[in-house]
């Protein structure tokens, strides 16, 4: 039973969700929030961090309780744990990063209904020890966050000409200043997030043939 903390099996829990078992691009879960909060990188990052914290700790808590939870109310127990953690995160955001919390608005509350979280609790934490559950949570949160940040990078760059709120395209490029360039307003709207996610899925599947459906 003296399995090492970072054995090969455990590392796989951490890295699989980043690639071949990504919650967004492979399992296609958690799309709603991925479309809504990715117009800029900063809220996307905070959302990714919040989801990672919530899913990692919820996994640990459920895993610790897994032998005591009455089978008939296990979904309710999972929901209560999730909801409590999400409200905690929301309260902390409101207290310490108010402007970000306003931008995320209802989506923090909606972490509770994010399918990734319930999916991990039900599929993994209920049947595994706390440490692997923690790694699984961090891995899935990171996999989700990675896609959010990639999408947000392109949407913010092409939609607002900035990265992380800093203008990076020179002002002189813009038509208003006599240049040739103008921001693509479509990129700020949710449909382009869906298309960006679609492109990422396309790239990933063309590189990894195992993921292609027959």
């Amino acid at each position: 039973m003296s399995e090492q903390l970072f054995s090969k099996k455990n590392m796989k829990l951490l890295t699989d969700p980043l690639g071949s078992n990504n919650p967004i691009t492979v399992q296609v879960l958690g799309i709603c929030s991925a479309l809504a909060v990715t117009a800029q990188m900063k809220p996307a990052f905070v959302m990714a961090l919040s989801v990672t914290v919530v899913v990692a700790f919820a996994n640990v808590i459920i895993s610790l309780l897994r032998n005591t939870i009455p089978n008939r109310i296990r979904i309710i127990v999972q929901l209560v744990v999730l909801a409590a953690l999400v409200i905690l995160v929301d309260q902390f955001l409101k207290a310490f990063v108010y402007d970000v919390s306003k931008q995320l608005s209802v989506f923090v509350g909606l972490i509770i209904t994010n399918c990734i979280l319930m999916g991990r609790l039900e599929a993994f934490a209920l049947g595994n020890k706390p440490w692997p559950s923690f790694l699984d949570g961090v891995g899935n949160g990171a996999g989700y966050g990675m896609i959010l940040l990639i999408v947000a990078f392109f949407r913010e760059l092409l939609g607002s000409g900035s990265i992380w709120g800093h203008k990076i395209l020179p002002e002189s490029w813009y038509i208003a200043q006599g240049g040739f360039y103008s921001n693509n307003g479509m990129m700020i709207l949710p449909p382009m997030a869906l298309i960006t996610v679609g492109v990422i899925i396309w790239v990933q599947r063309s590189r990894n043939r195992n993921l292609q459906e027959k």
Partner: peptide, 8 residues
């Protein structure tokens, strides 16, 4: 956390 939130 209430005092921090009211302040914001």
């Amino acid at each position: 956390l209430k005092p921090f939130q009211t302040k914001n």
